[in-house]
């Protein structure tokens, strides 16, 4: 009642290594503008957490940067590269924007859906793959394309997709 605004600390959810990395970004902003580092901090804790952000982790980021939790939720929900539900080990982000669409991305999507047995936005039961439809990733010249992890894979064909997926663990 008396302390209604004060919540139990969740800072311990962020690892020491992540904190160190976040501090690197915090240092780029004036001391009273720490919240500038919120996007970097969310990316770092998302990586730490297997590719997605839990509410508790977002609260921890808010606490560390002196923000209200809702301000962090606003950022995390605005940008499509923050995941707020668990994702597979490999997140396949397939572009279906205009250039890729003209070059046959629908075919690639259908193939992926068949091969993995999931629809866009879903994760395979074994937790290996998540299939996500995204907007233009700026690689139109090599359309159709998708991104897995940090890598772009371009000029996709069904065969090439199979080859790529076979090579992943």
């Amino acid at each position: 009642m008396m302390q209604s605004g004060k919540r139990a600390s969740k800072l311990h959810l962020i690892t020491a290594a992540s904190l160190e990395e976040i501090d690197h970004w915090v240092a780029k902003y004036p001391a009273d503008r720490k919240q500038g580092a919120v996007m970097a901090a969310l990316r770092i804790v998302q990586d730490q957490n297997g590719g997605w952000l839990s509410n508790d982790l977002m609260d921890a980021v808010a606490e560390y940067l002196g923000m209200e939790p809702i301000e962090v939720y606003e950022v995390a929900t605005f940008y499509s590269m923050y995941e707020r539900d668990p994702v597979g080990r490999h997140k396949i982000c397939i572009c279906t924007n205009i250039s890729c669409m003209l070059c046959g991305s629908a075919e690639i999507v259908r193939h992926l859906e068949e091969r993995l047995g999931i629809k866009l936005g879903e994760t395979t039961e074994d937790g290996r793959f998540t299939l996500k439809e995204v907007e233009c990733l700026g690689a139109c010249v090599d359309a159709p394309m998708f991104q897995i992890g940090r890598n772009y894979y371009a000029k996709l064909t069904k065969e090439k997709v199979d080859e790529i997926l076979d090579a992943l663990d």
């Binding site: 509410n55 209200e68 809702i70 939720y73 606003e74 940008y79």
Partner: peptide, 30 residues
């Protein structure tokens, strides 16, 4: 909430057509 009440409880989450005003996590406005 931010400027007058001094506790920011409501926010605009999501983007574009999917923007929603709310608390994101279920909580009352206090």
């Amino acid at each position: 909430g931010r400027e007058i009440a001094g506790i920011m409880e409501l926010g605009a989450t999501g983007r574009g057509e999917h923007t929603e005003i709310g608390t994101y996590v279920e909580r009352t406005v206090n």
